[in-house]
Design a protein around this nucleic acid. Structure first.
Lengths: 144, 144
DNA sequence: CCGTATCCTCCTGGATACTG
DNA sequence: CAGTATCCAGGAGGATACGG
């Protein structure tokens, strides 16, 4: 497992005061780490799927088409380490492992939804901004 | 500029229905893209700094210790493209360029704060979960 | 079934040097 | 001052094969 154990290998521990958001961003700061987890390519998929129900490894893999076995394992371990999901091993053959959201994980879903709603409410504006921006770029390129 | 122009180079356009979060995650979906922007290593720093006041390029670079000139430029372009910040070039010598948050950007700050508050409110639980997890890992490793 | 171990590729992002 | 261009190292993540 080479992914970097969230131990924050970089020793640069600079502190910035960001009063607009009322927090200090440090390398390896909590906020940063949670944000990284939230923005992780697969984490949100897993969290949202487990929002409905408990699922086992293979079921998750089947639902999340495109994820590799390795990345599903890695993602699940991260979420488990952070206490967002719970892993239950049933001592049967063939092995059966269930994954479920913890209370902490449920709370995160609530929070994320506000971000999602904001995005949905403003995505038209964003798309429009991008089109305008790209148009300006293109115009500038032609002028060269 | 090799960073991938958000044009979504991957043609895999799979759709999953995630009713827990009430949205479809597609490769290149809007929600994903905004989330990526929010979780970007430097974006939040820039946004929060511009939350107070208009700043120029060098001022931002000075405030965000550790950022390279290239990454500041890239980050600013992305935010500008999405309509979150506004870039004003003053035709003077030496050149002066001001960056300010747009209304859209201000709205994003509001939204992010709920995530930040959640993180702050739960970071003790998360740290505790990690310690327990790591302890279990260590115990399992010794047992080998 | 549920992983872990290994390899290998591509992308991100830092360092550096150069322009208007 | 405010970038752009180029090069390059390191890590994320996919494919594959194997183990309990």
């Amino acid at each position: 497992m080479e992914e970097g154990t969230s131990e924050s290998p970089s020793s640069a521990d600079v502190t910035y005061s960001c009063s607009a958001l009322q927090w200090d961003i440090r390398e390896g700061c909590e906020v940063r780490q949670i944000l990284d987890r939230v923005a992780d390519k697969w984490s949100l998929m897993v969290i949202s799927l487990l929002g409905h129900q408990t699922l086992r490894f293979t079921e998750l893999k089947r639902e999340i088409e495109g994820i590799s076995q390795r990345m599903l394992t890695v993602t699940l371990r991260h979420l488990e380490r952070d206490g967002l999901i719970e892993r239950t091993v049933h001592p049967v053959v063939p092995p059966r492992v269930d994954y479920a959201l913890t209370d902490l994980g449920c709370g995160l879903i609530e929070t994320i939804q506000s971000l999602v709603r904001w995005t949905e409410g403003n995505q038209e504006a964003i798309v429009r901004a991008r089109l305008e921006f790209d148009a300006r770029q293109a115009a500038a390129a032609i002028a060269t």
